[in-house]
Write a protein that binds this DNA or RNA. Structure first.
Lengths: 206, 206
DNA sequence: TGTCCCGTATATCAGCCCGATATAGGATGG
DNA sequence: CCATCCTATATCGGGCTGATATACGGGACA
């Protein structure tokens, strides 16, 4: 499941340019999958070479020329095959949470700013999802159960995140103290958090 | 905020090898940030070259030799500086949700298997968080507010995801129908979901 | 006893992705 | 009239992922 597959998926909704496809990702998947031009254009070039899509160039009528891509029958089959084969991953990469882990090392003002920023971003993502939902209803293409499931999932998860931040930001702020456990070392420190093993015990942090 | 910074952060808890650092990431950040050896070892090499950490090699006493890294004063300062400068991102990359978006194109059995897999993964992540919490309490290094915040965040978000899946998987399954909107095209199809603009209108999907 | 697998530990590499950047014309708006 | 934004394509360096190689000790099991 790479950007090539995502492009095939986008093209199942109709012909589109690379630019269109990026807009589609932003409107449908902004909370769970994003791809930049640096991924999309090479992907479309490869798909064309593999005959999974065809491209027709339309000279620019007021603007740069456009390449409109169309899914071939082979492309549609390849997409369905990938949907059946892929082992779907779900990964979160959050510098935000890493920063929060080290909250004790940050000035409270900065901490506050970061939390506000995160809340604002969540609010924005929720807005995007609601716009998408409104649009699908307007287009009569509502009751696509997959799309509705994904929207609901995003809303549920982000509402939980927002609620959690509101409920616990006080506890974070009220604890502005020195690096880690001040001076006196805790019982057994060191990075090694999982239980120490035989040849592992007590090596570091001697 | 790259893997180099994460390594500095891990080393604020005490000296460690590259292997230890990976274990630390897995135990503390498995639900929000992971890095493989392919990122960690080069990062440690660069940090050594920049004098932000020092390395001492311990010949293997029953096993391969180990390189134990230690944060320098410059390294500690650099880490604090990065914490203050970074604009923290929070990104989700979910092939799972993309697949769910195209749920109509999947056989129900496969759909069920994927949902079960996702639930199992969530369960496992929650378990890891609880182990981490138990360990910090046992080590007396509990009441580190940052770490507690991150654990709570992970639990809240994943509980919401799990609840959502349980509540809505029925709706997904009960809708096994043909690709997208069967035969008759919807009012205006095509990838272009955001409102069409002047030079954009009606180009594709003619 | 031999063997097989697992855990510890380091390291590299191809391939993919991200973010920034360049280019360029039309529309919009102060 | 000029600045800024939107449409649209494309490339590139740097960073990360996942797989792979190497090596030794210990425990399980027959």
């Amino acid at each position: 499941m790479d950007v090539k597959d995502l492009c095939l998926g986008a093209l199942t909704y109709g012909d589109a340019t690379g630019y269109d496809i990026k807009k589609f990702f932003e409107s449908s998947f902004s909370h769970c999958f994003l791809a930049g031009y640096g991924s999309i254009y090479p992907a479309l070039a490869e798909l064309t070479a593999e005959k999974l899509v065809t491209a027709r160039t339309v000279p620019g009528q007021g603007g740069p020329s456009r390449k409109i891509y169309k899914l071939t029958e082979a492309g549609r089959k390849a997409f369905l095959a990938r949907l059946k084969q892929t082992v779907p991953q779900h990964k979160v990469k959050s510098e935000f949470l890493v920063l929060m882990h080290f909250a004790e090392l940050l000035p409270p003002a900065r901490l506050n700013a970061i939390l506000d920023e995160r809340l604002e971003d969540i609010r924005h993502q929720l807005e995007l999802i609601q716009e998408f939902e409104a649009r699908t209803v307007a287009q009569g293409s509502a009751n696509a159960p997959g799309a509705r499931f994904v929207c609901g999932f995003g809303k549920a998860v982000m509402a939980a995140a927002s609620d959690y931040i509101h409920a616990h930001r006080g506890g974070l702020l009220r604890a502005g103290r020195r690096p880690h456990s001040s001076n006196k070392k805790p019982a057994r420190a060191g990075v090694r958090s999982p239980q120490a093993t035989s040849r592992n015990r007590g090596y570091t942090n001697a």
